[in-house]
Write a protein that binds this DNA or RNA. Structure first.
Lengths: 142, 142
DNA sequence: GTATTATATTTGACTGGTCAATGGATAGTG
DNA sequence: CACTATCCATTGACCAGTCAAATATAATAC
């Protein structure tokens, strides 16, 4: 018996396929990986932040965060120092250099997203965002 | 000047964050990685298929396909043989074993997706699927 | 019929994520 | 005050994707 796969069942694959396509293209277009861009974005609106709270904000494994930040540090865009009051935690912040570069990156990001969503109404973007948030909470307990 | 980031700009990050969360959970729940599941699914409704057309169907780099298929071959779920009429191409097919296993995997997949979309109406699922398709075509030219 | 070009698969180097284990620092408890 | 818990960051091992280069075969052009 042949038996095809429903739209529901394929949603996951569509999701994965789309992000797999997006990631390298984003990086080519903007000159920075999506994850590093997100880290810089998070730092942009703050002075100094715990590495662990930064990690929770971007929802990537701590090991990857450590590596990204080290890289961003050696490239001069972020600064890191230990919290003198608690030597376990590390404070992360943007350098002046990083603060300037993020502005450029942000332009590229906006261009990319605008292209990707050029035929989307604002309501659709909202709906999409909401649905993703719901999916996130629906699987968060797993 | 502090300057926050719009919903549009954050869509990408939301996307990436969600797939990053989904992938390991899917694998834990179903016992197979999403990519391998997709490969098996594709093979389920066919007799024999070119590796290259399979690759285009799942939209993953050929290098990764080769590695996945080799793994699935040594685990006894797929068979591969060269096309006698064109020794460049490789025919891939499910083994009996693979054909049985995919049925189980599919159950797990449905359970997982059902949980993830449990509060979605069918119309929402359709809308989501359509939007992803549009995004895909919107960035395909890049 | 050879030379070139194109196609299919494979391999290697690299990136970025996961988990599990480690080390150092702090907090809580008897 | 020790002793245990916990927390934070790091490290190592692994997996899955990318690109680019290599290989082998087929198709095309002269």
């Amino acid at each position: 018996m042949s038996c095809s796969f429903s739209k529901q069942e394929q949603i996951l694959q569509q999701f994965k396929g789309l992000t797999n396509q997006i990631s390298p293209k984003f990086e080519r277009c903007t000159g920075i990986s999506a994850s590093r861009y997100e880290l810089l974005s998070q730092l942009y609106n703050t002075e100094e932040i715990n590495q662990s709270t930064l990690q929770k904000a971007v929802n990537i494994d701590g090991a990857a965060i450590t590596r990204h930040l080290k890289q961003l540090e050696t490239s001069g865009m972020v600064a890191r120092r230990r919290n003198p009051d608690d030597n376990r935690v590390i404070f992360v912040s943007l350098t002046e250099e990083g603060r300037q570069r993020i502005v450029e990156y942000r332009k590229e990001n906006m261009g990319f997203v605008k292209q990707m969503l050029h035929d989307f109404t604002p309501e659709e973007v909202d709906a999409l965002s909401d649905m993703m948030e719901r999916m996130q909470t629906n699987i968060s307990e797993y």
